[in-house]
């Protein structure tokens, strides 16, 4: 067995009834590997890691990994994670969500989690579609694309998840793809290591529900599109808007400092205790 397979095996749940539910060729497995490699490099003890998800294909990820795991309600993973992190700040909390999960039904929680700045890492698998429910359009489905609920074409305009994260105050925002695996490993590692609310947007493919309907080919063709259209943030800075048309940037989009909620709240506790004592 090659070394990297052994590594992945060390973090999988062997008493879970594999095979997993993902379609052959789905990008979710690539993220699963990237997340495990990042956690391994960070040297976290399994007991110190909590992986929490919402509902969707991507949100099925936690059940396969041997950490403290929770599969919550659609769109609400960040709210559960907020409670977990506040009640046990020593846990490293990673939240896995789909684009619909994080940005449609969970959009409000997403912006407020970013604003609040708990030390949590949010990983969003952006496949431009609702995979699990059969290909309905999501807030990241491109304008003009087809979906099962947009049989005549999508007339809504897509959100940029990363830009939303930046504007909402996330202290670290990275965008990667399932094609650029090394970058993805690094982004997840950086995001977890960052103190504060960090976001990694992962562009991935759902060839079954999105690719087929839009004649984009299978996983290989769709990954090729990611390869061809991705521009490193550093390179994009030197390119003209015209050159950047139809492209998207990958890399670190924001990295800044802001007080961390847990620390701030500890200061509140200290003050509250002092003031209560003073009264007696």
């Amino acid at each position: 067995m090659p070394e990297y397979t052994k590594l992945i095996h060390r973090y999988l749940r062997h008493d879970k009834k594999f095979p997993h539910i993902w379609c052959p060729g789905c990008g979710n497995g690539i993220l699963l590997g990237a997340m495990i490699r990042a956690i391994d490099r960070l040297g976290y003890d399994k007991d110190e890691v909590a992986v929490i998800s919402g509902i969707g294909c991507s949100s099925r990820l936690p059940v396969y990994v041997d950490f403290n795991t929770m599969h919550t309600t659609h769109g609400r993973a960040l709210t559960f994670a907020t409670g977990v992190k506040l009640a046990n700040p020593s846990l490293n909390v990673i939240v896995i969500m789909g684009d619909g999960d994080a940005i449609a039904i969970g959009g409000n929680h997403f912006i407020h989690a970013a604003r609040r700045n708990l030390n949590i890492t949010a990983v969003i698998m952006n496949n431009s579609i609702y995979g699990m429910t059969g290909g309905q359009y999501s807030p990241t489905t491109p304008y003009g694309a087809y979906a099962s609920t947009a049989p005549y074409r999508n007339i809504e305009h897509a959100f940029s998840i990363s830009e939303l994260a930046v504007c909402s105050g996330a202290v670290f925002v990275g965008r990667g793809t399932v094609y650029h695996v090394r970058l993805l490993d690094r982004l997840i590692e950086q995001a977890c290591a960052k103190r504060g609310f960090s976001v990694v947007e992962v562009l991935t493919h759902c060839h079954v529900q999105y690719g087929r309907r839009n004649e984009l080919g299978g996983p290989v063709e769709m990954m090729k599109m990611h390869k061809e259209n991705a521009v490193k943030v550093e390179d994009a800075a030197k390119m003209s808007p015209k050159e950047l048309e139809g492209k998207f940037t990958i890399g670190v989009l924001a990295d800044r400092e802001k007080p961390i909620y847990n620390q701030e709240y500890q200061a509140i506790r200290d003050r509250a205790a002092r003031e209560a004592e003073g009264k007696e």
Partner: peptide
Amino acid sequence: PQAGGTFIQMEDEIASLGAVIGASIAGAKA
């Protein structure tokens, strides 16, 4: 906070109960 506990005002009631459930899983009475 005087008692070493945690209060948080969430963005809505869905989030509130989500946080309560998360905190309970992590070991708190919530």
